[in-house]
């Protein structure tokens, strides 16, 4: 059995004219990071809002929030991406659909980032909701009794505690955005897994390519993990819930 393992391949010129293979992987890494980070920003904003309204005493809003979470959590991410990329432009008025297909800048990237953001938002919303519900009801009542309005109670009493509680599960979601971004290769985003497939196809160095890409994903996930651990440490307030001293 001859597996023909040649590490020098990473420095060899690729036949695509895009420079050596390591540069291919670097381009992929940049798109993966860009997609995951923009997706995460969108997910945090929408997820926080949806999570909060699901606990608010306004029934219609809470129901809308629940519906959002159920829809985006129950449909596989790949199907969602196909919907945004292939189905939505056909459902819109012709001019808007054509714009999405032909004139929108970087359509694969925007679709992937927004799609990933909306998908992850449902999961973030679930975490935020459970964070808020884990607080004792007395917290909210005490805030209102002090004369704070409901939004003020959320802003100054509930959310500071809830967000600190959910940092660990959010860390997992943040790491997942990097891993889930690989699905975007299905709509042709030239991210890391896409470049891995290209490199395997051109160089036939399956083992080295997959090894290199695995290491890159692990490094990204580890960086996120450490960043979130750092945020958790910095955000710690002694005496506050889940924020006790060391």
């Amino acid at each position: 059995m001859n597996l023909h393992i040649d590490w020098g391949i990473l420095w060899q010129e690729s036949p695509t004219g895009d420079g050596p293979y390591w540069q291919l992987l670097l381009t992929g890494l940049q798109w993966t990071a860009a997609t995951a980070l923009s997706g995460w920003v969108i997910a945090l904003i929408i997820g926080a809002v949806v999570g909060v309204v699901r606990t608010a005493p306004i029934r219609t809003l809470a129901l809308l929030g629940d519906a959002y979470v159920e829809v985006f959590r129950n449909i596989p991410f790949l199907v969602q991406l196909f919907f945004w990329f292939f189905v939505l432009p056909e459902m819109l008025p012709k001019a808007a659909g054509d714009w999405m297909k032909q004139d929108m800048p970087r359509p694969e990237f925007i679709t992937a980032a927004v799609g990933l953001g909306l998908f992850t938002a449902a999961r973030v919303a679930e975490q935020v909701k459970s964070g808020i519900l884990s607080l004792s009801r007395g917290q909210k009542n005490a805030g209102l009794a002090l004369g704070l309005t409901l939004p003020q109670t959320y802003r100054h009493v509930l959310l500071p505690m809830a967000f600190r509680i959910v940092i660990p599960p959010l860390t997992s979601e943040f790491m997942n955005t990097f891993k889930n971004s690989a699905v975007a290769l299905a709509i042709g985003l030239t991210e890391l897994t896409f470049q891995m497939k290209q490199m395997v196809e051109y160089s036939n160095q399956v083992i080295i390519t997959i090894f290199a890409v695995t290491v890159l994903y692990m490094v990204m996930a580890l960086a996120v993990n450490r960043l979130m651990a750092w945020i958790e440490r910095k955000a710690r307030v002694p005496g506050m819930i889940a924020g006790g001293g060391k």
Binding site: F86, P89, K101, Q102, P107, E108, L185, A186, G188, F194
Partner: peptide, 18 residues
Amino acid sequence: NLYGKDHDESFLMLETGR
């Protein structure tokens, strides 16, 4: 340049005008 995951998808991109 656009990329399809497989030939069906590439053809879909041609069919839908992408």
